[in-house]
């Protein structure tokens, strides 16, 4: 080997050994559900608390929503929020990867549990046509809360004062559409839910943004609200497209609040209806037992 080769090698090696320092990092990933997840209910997962430890960096996200570790159900997206129908009857994993602009990835899987304690019963009521109730049970450190909701739309015998669907199957499914004064005085023990009662149910069902969907979900533990429509001026309108459910709250002398749900919409909203309009009814009752 000729001697000039050695200094050249020396320089090359020194250059290679002293290359720029590298700071390596990966994103901090955290995510949570905005509301407690319930089987088949839509739930929003939020990873907006995630961040890159590199200044000025931003993240992309993709989700393994069925936790199978096999495929990612979403493409990379800048949106840290995703809404899904919760797939687990009891518990299961959901995974998230976040990627920074250097391509470094952090992956996080979390187990999610769902636990809705309920029972379905057929109580004795003042009504001629019985309805089933779903009894949700909640335990707290100092009290126990039983929250009972009619599991069927209230159905009344035929009368000119309200609207019954001609087919018996439709009557069973949609119940009776009735004016507010009738709805508000149906049963001695069970009451027409107030706006606040409905709001609690909306919160239980994922909030106003998702309750419209979750209240309609065909799951045993859900209210399974139907879309009978509304009768105004003697005409059945929006049948199969919307459902209006009276609340116990009057807006004024002639009108009252109702909950409105719509086919294909995740949202639930309160609207004001004339008290003479014929809308659907669910009744409810609750008990709180302090320990």
């Amino acid at each position: 080997m000729k001697t000039p080769v050695i200094p050249i090698l020396f320089l090359s090696v020194a250059l290679l050994a002293s290359c720029d320092s590298t700071e390596m990092t990966s994103p901090v990933v955290v995510f949570d559900a905005l509301t407690p997840p319930i089987y088949k209910f839509k739930v929003t997962l939020d990873a907006s608390g995630s961040f890159s430890t590199e200044e000025g960096d931003w993240l992309e996200y993709r989700w393994d929503l069925n936790g199978d570790h096999l495929a990612w159900e979403t493409d990379w997206s800048n949106n840290p929020v995703v809404t899904l129908q919760f797939p687990y009857e009891h518990n299961g994993y959901i995974g998230l990867q976040a990627r920074d602009q250097n391509g470094n990835i952090t992956e996080l899987y979390q187990g999610f549990y769902t636990n809705v304690n309920y029972g379905i019963i057929r109580p004795n009521t003042d009504l001629e046509i019985d309805f089933r109730t779903i009894n949700y049970q909640f335990s707290f450190p100092d009290h126990h809360w039983s929250w009972m909701w009619a599991y069927d739309n209230i159905q009344l015998p035929g009368s000119a004062g309200w609207y019954n669907f001609p087919a018996s199957a439709d009557r069973a499914l949609y119940g009776t559409l009735m004016p507010w004064p009738v709805a508000n005085n149906l049963e001695e023990d069970y009451r027409l839910p107030s706006k606040a009662d409905w709001q609690k149910m909306i919160d239980f069902c994922g909030g106003a943004a998702l309750a419209g969907f979750n209240l309609q979900v065909k799951a045993e533990h859900g209210l399974q609200l139907t879309l009978p429509g509304l009768v105004t001026a003697g005409q059945l309108r929006e049948h199969g497209k919307t459902g209006y459910y009276w609340t116990g709250d009057e807006a004024d002398e002639d009108s009252a609040w109702a909950l409105k749900i719509t086919e294909g919409s995740d949202e639930a909203e309160f609207v004001i209806l004339d008290k003479s309009s014929l809308a659907s009814v669910r009744l409810m009752i609750e008990f709180i037992n302090y320990r």
Binding site: N91, Q110, F112, Y113, N115
Partner: peptide
């Protein structure tokens, strides 16, 4: 800390 419905 995570809520009760999350298990880690």
């Amino acid at each position: 800390e995570s809520p009760d419905y999350i298990g880690r």
